[in-house]
Amino acid sequence: MKVIFLKDVKGKGKKGEIKNVPDGYARNFLFKKGLAIEATPANLKELE
Rank of each mutant, 00 (worst) to 15 (best):
Y25L: 08
T40L: 06
E46S: 14
A42P: 08
E46R: 14
A36E: 00
G11L: 04
G16S: 04
V9P: 01
K32D: 09
E38I: 08
E17L: 03
N20A: 11
E17V: 04
I37P: 00
P22M: 07
K10P: 15
K19G: 08
L6D: 00
K19Y: 07
E46N: 13
N20M: 15
E46W: 15
A42E: 15
E38K: 10
G16Y: 08
G34P: 00
L44I: 13
V3A: 01
I37S: 04
A42D: 15
K33V: 10
P41S: 11
N43A: 13
P22H: 09
K10N: 10
E46Q: 15
P41G: 08
K10W: 14
K12Y: 15
A39H: 06
K14D: 06
G16V: 01
K33P: 02
Y25V: 06
G11H: 09
K7S: 10
G24E: 14
F5A: 00
A42I: 12
N28K: 11
I37M: 09
E38V: 07
N43M: 09
L47T: 08
G24K: 11
G16K: 02
K12H: 15
N28A: 07
K45Q: 12
L44H: 06
I18D: 01
P22K: 07
E46A: 15
A26Y: 13
G16D: 05
K45A: 14
I37Q: 07
G13N: 03
A26W: 09
P41V: 12
K10A: 13
E46F: 12
V3Y: 00
V9M: 04
G11P: 03
K12R: 14
F29W: 11
G24S: 14
G13D: 02
V21P: 00
E38M: 09
L35K: 03
K2Y: 14
K7L: 09
I18T: 06
K32Y: 07
I18E: 04
A26V: 07
K2H: 10
N43S: 09
K10I: 12
A26H: 04
K19W: 08
R27K: 13
K33D: 10
V3H: 00
G11V: 01
F5H: 00
F5P: 00
G24H: 14
V9K: 01
I4T: 01
K10H: 13
I37N: 02
I4A: 03
L6M: 07
V9Y: 04
L44A: 06
G13R: 01
D23F: 13
K32H: 08
Y25Q: 04
G11Y: 07
D8L: 03
R27W: 11
K10R: 14
P41Y: 10
P22L: 08
L30P: 02
N28T: 07
R27F: 11
K45I: 12
A26E: 08
I4K: 04
N20S: 13
A42H: 13
D23P: 13
G34W: 07
K12S: 14
P41L: 13
F31M: 07
L35G: 01
K7I: 10
D23Q: 12
Y25F: 10
L44G: 04
G13P: 01
P22T: 10
N20L: 15
F29M: 07
M1I: 15
E46Y: 14
V21Q: 04
K15L: 07
V21Y: 06
G11T: 06
G16E: 02
G13Y: 12
M1D: 02
L47D: 05
E38D: 04
I37A: 07
K15A: 14
F31G: 02
K32I: 13
R27P: 04
N43P: 04
E38S: 07
K15N: 03
N43L: 10
A36F: 00
V9I: 08
L44N: 06
A42S: 12
T40F: 06
V21G: 00
E17F: 03
L30Q: 01
F29P: 03
K33M: 15
L30Y: 03
L35W: 11
E38L: 10
A26G: 04
G13A: 13
A39Q: 02
A36Y: 00
A39G: 05
D8K: 05
G16W: 10
K7M: 11
N20T: 15
A42W: 06
V3L: 03
L47I: 12
M1T: 13
G34V: 03
V3M: 02
A39W: 12
E48R: 11
L35T: 01
L47G: 06
N28M: 10
G24I: 13
F29E: 13
F31W: 02
N28L: 09
A36Q: 01
G34A: 07
A42K: 12
G16I: 01
N20P: 07
E46D: 11
I18R: 02
F31E: 05
L35Q: 03
I4M: 08
K33G: 08
K12D: 06
I37H: 05
L35R: 02
N43E: 06
P41H: 11
